[in-house]
Design a binder for these strands. Structure first.
Length: 465
RNA sequence: GGCGGCGUACCCAAGUGGCUAAGGGAGAGGUCUGCAAAACCUUUAUUCACCGGUUCGAAUCCGGUCGCCGCCUCCA
């Protein structure tokens, strides 16, 4: 079975056929590190992580590049306000971003290039464009002339007359030949950081870095380019113009975009007070895995409505699977395997893969897990499963978790001797029908976030946290 | 004005022409149990915003209405 993805450019779901056999080269637009990354940004990054992990699950070799934009107008302005260099200013937010990624278990891409470390590559690209007659200078800045690139608009399907009619083009950009021409290299402004270049002292335009860095690490044509829907126009449209204008070759085969996240039904904005960073949520007691589940469980092309209720529902869903795993692990080796279960697991695996292959239908993929959980739970209750069955199910869950990474599939270790002794003591107390002591111990452990459950087979513990 | 998306049970959410409309949460009932908690099982939409149409057959296709949202400007 092949993975199919919705390609923004063709507006169709297409089978992923990499340019190089079994090797996927993917570029995803990363953060601009001028503030703490918010949960809307993470919706997109989470989608990219699920795609990344599923490509690996499918056995593709993967080179994934995610840029870090560490120079742009906001960064320059904010750094100046704080009297800091760009590098000092962005360092804090870049580190925070990497920490947040780790909390959310978003895998690090193979390559994470920074814009400021690729100024030369950007200038080389502008030079090439200049040689091809696709640039012009105005007021010390260098612009891309979109009239020189006939394919302009093929990604966003916007025709330029419509944009002009919208009246949304900035008045102050009169220095451009065409309002939709975009800047490649911006003239420096007094008091701001700048780089010297053949095009004068200045700084790179926003779109330039993604073209320069993606082609440096992935070649002039590569497979997948992702981002949030808002980047379709103008950012990705301009990337195509710059890249294909320079190389004459197709830039990207599949453009894949994630829909936005809204909060409690409304667009997230600071003025509405519904603007959240991961840190804001953690401070409210949210567990990163709940957010991970919530962000991953809604199809990436559907607008995701973030709510605190949804966060709790996600946590409860994860708990169902984790409780199942604890129970599953209690199946002893000695019991003979039920031969029918292997097929049931194979069915779940096939449902999971079919769903994910279908443009990353994560909701349906998760359903395949829960259906298996229910069926296996019934059989555990009947005592009809053996150690081999247990391992079959665990193996399936490991595969699933290599993509979702929200479940505790591996055995939880209780490395605290004191707790272990208390559990033993309580088991004895119950045998002695000293329930007062038993309850006391249960309460003590509860305070240590260890939850005890008495079952027919004995007492089990779980981390509550 | 242009382009695009969405509206499925109390909540979240799959399903896009034909078996009984996935799955999760929550509620209700039950099992287990010293108690409690947890867990597990069962259950909850004759109906898919509304109105027409096409069809033997539509949540799914077409037209219209209402509501919500996104992009066209920095934005994941």
């Amino acid at each position: 079975m092949a993975l199919k993805l919705y390609n923004t450019q063709t507006r169709q779901i297409e089978e992923l056929v990499p340019l190089k056999d079994q090797e996927v080269r993917m570029y995803t637009c990363g953060p601009t590190v001028y503030h703490f990354v918010h949960i809307g940004n993470f919706r997109t990054f989470m989608f990219q992580d699920i795609l990344r992990r599923y490509l690996l699950y499918k056995g593709f070799r993967l080179t994934h590049v995610m840029n870090i934009t560490d120079v742009d107008d906001k960064i320059i302005i904010n750094a100046r306000k704080r009297n800091q260099t760009i590098a000092d200013y962005t360092k804090e937010f870049e580190e925070a971003f990497l920490e947040d990624m780790k909390s959310l278990r978003i895998q690090q891409p193979e390559i994470m290039p920074k814009a400021t470390e690729h100024i030369q590559e950007m200038l080389d690209l502008v030079s090439t464009l200049q040689q091809k007659g696709l640039t012009y200078q105005s007021d010390g800045s260098t612009y891309f002339r979109i009239d020189g690139f006939s394919d302009y608009g093929k990604l966003s399907h916007l025709d330029s007359s419509a944009t002009v009619q919208s009246g949304r083009v900035d008045d102050d950009e009169y220095t451009k030949e065409n309002p939709r021409d975009f800047v490649l290299w911006k003239a420096k402004r007094e008091g701001e950081e700048w780089w010297s270049s053949p095009f004068g002292e200045g700084r790179p335009g926003w779109h330039l870095e993604c073209s320069a860095m993606s082609m440096k690490y992935l070649g002039s044509s590569f497979d997948i380019h992702c981002g949030g829907v808002d980047l379709v126009f103008p950012h990705h449209e301009n990337e195509i113009a710059q890249s294909e204008g320079a190389t004459g070759r197709p830039f990207v085969k599949y453009w894949v975009h994630a829909a936005h996240l809204i909060v409690e039904g409304q667009k997230m904005s600071k003025s509405l007070g519904n603007f959240f960073t991961l840190r804001d949520l953690l401070a409210k007691g949210c567990r990163p895995r709940s957010l991970r589940y919530l962000l991953a469980s809604v199809h990436y092309r559907k607008q995701l409505n973030f709510t605190f209720d949804g966060l709790e529902q996600s946590e409860a869903s994860i708990r169902r699977v984790n409780d199942f795993i604890v129970r599953l692990r209690e199946i002893p080796d000695e019991i003979a395997a039920n031969p029918a279960l292997e097929q049931r697991v194979a069915l779940a695996r096939s449902q999971f893969e079919q769903a994910m292959d279908d443009d990353l239908n994560t909701s349906a993929a998760l359903a395949s897990i829960f259906e298996l959980v229910r069926d296996v739970n019934i059989q555990i209750e009947e005592g009809s499963l053996g150690g081999e069955n247990r391992d079959q199910v665990l193996e399936f869950l490991r595969g699933v978790n290599s993509v979702f990474d929200v479940f505790d599939v591996e055995e939880q270790q209780l490395d605290d001797d004191e707790i272990r002794q208390l559990i033993e003591e309580r088991i004895q107390a119950r045998r002695d029908r000293n329930f007062q002591r038993a309850d006391e111990i249960r309460q003590m452990l509860m305070e240590k976030n260890i939850l005890l459950e008495d079952t027919r087979e004995g007492t089990r513990w779980k981390r509550r946290n």
